[in-house]
């Protein structure tokens, strides 16, 4: 039990993932700055931002449903901590038992931050937050379909394995899933879905600072906003590691860097799309590719 607690809070759960996430978000900001011919912040900037938020005043809009408004950030954080613990464990210790997750569990836990964000925005009673949350939930619907289909490909190819440990073990013996055509297609789809799950450009219409002033986050301030930012930072670690675990034979630093670079490049070279374009993109092209991948996987390709 103590070991699980350590796993959950220190390594590889909360503190470790958060630390990696802060570094990753610094890389993101530095690269973005270089792309835009700026110098970019020093490496500790994301941490300072968090500390800065923690000393700011917290305001609540009049008429908000306060219990939901205050609990939402915490629920999202808790969900992402548990998910990242589940995702990291098979990569550091294949043999341990008792505290394990499988693909479905992780998929559901990774939606908790989105649900928390949506409920928090909804409880604030701000019309712009309502606009943001309506986009956010539609975006969830949009990427969930191709993401689910992409995630069936490891299950099909391993003929019915579900636990993350089993999948990693299977891939170490039989080679990573990305070494086949269906695996490549699946990870491409999953990368796009990851971008949307992270709420980064071109899929940041739920926040859209220039348009609806942060949308779902508009009423959040101080440490509540800080916790949402922290959750998002941790997602920036949890999702790429999840993808490399289920498609790419397990985590390693260079795989993570590759995925991070893809995320950063995609976010710097694209404009924000409208929500209906996003829904059409995910339910159209992405779903089609995912279905082709699933079809190829059943043929063993």
């Amino acid at each position: 039990m103590m070991k699980h607690l350590f796993n959950f809070i220190v390594f590889p759960g909360f503190l470790f993932t958060a630390a990696v996430g802060l570094v990753a978000s610094w890389i993101d900001r530095k690269v973005t700055a270089r792309v835009q011919w700026r110098v970019g912040p020093p490496w500790y900037q994301p941490l300072i931002d968090l500390v800065k938020l923690s000393i700011k005043e917290i305001t609540v809009p009049r008429g908000a449903i306060k219990p939901v408004f205050f609990l939402a950030p915490l629920v999202g954080l808790s969900g992402v901590i548990l998910a990242s613990t589940f995702i990291w464990l098979p990569n550091i210790d294949l043999g341990a038992t008792g505290f394990r997750g499988d693909i479905i569990v992780v998929l559901y836990l990774l939606t908790l931050p989105a649900i928390a964000l949506i409920l928090g925005a909804s409880s604030s009673g701000n019309p712009l937050a309502s606009v943001g949350l309506s986009r956010e939930i539609k975006l969830v619907l949009a990427y969930e379909l191709p993401f689910i289909i992409a995630l069936t490909i490891p299950i099909i190819k391993s003929s019915g394995l579900l636990k993350l440990t089993d999948l990693v073990a299977y891939q170490t013996i039989n080679g990573a899933f990305v070494s086949s055509i269906s695996g490549v297609l699946a990870i491409i789809v999953a990368i796009f879905c990851m971008q949307a799950k992270l709420g980064l450009v071109p899929f940041d219409m739920g926040e859209a600072e220039t348009e609806i002033m942060g949308g779902v986050l508009i009423e959040y301030s101080g440490m509540l906003l800080g916790i949402f930012k922290l959750t998002k930072t941790m997602m920036l670690v949890a999702l790429p590691v999840f993808l490399s675990t289920v498609f790419w034979g397990g985590f390693s630093i260079w795989k993570y860097v590759v995925l991070l670079v893809i995320i950063v490049l995609m976010r710097n070279t694209n404009p924000r799309v409208r929500i209906d374009q996003a829904v059409r993109f995910f339910w159209g092209k992405m779903t089609a590719i995912a279905i082709i991948a699933a079809f190829l996987a059943t043929l063993g390709m």
Binding site: V60, I81, S124, M213, E219, G222
Partner: peptide, 24 residues
């Protein structure tokens, strides 16, 4: 995890909250 979040929350400069009008 909720407890951890609460600790992070209280680690900040917690002086109570202020009610404002919704900002648009």
């Amino acid at each position: 995890g909720l407890g951890v979040g609460l600790l992070v929350y209280l680690a900040g400069n917690f002086k109570g909250v202020r009610e404002t009008d919704p900002y648009i």
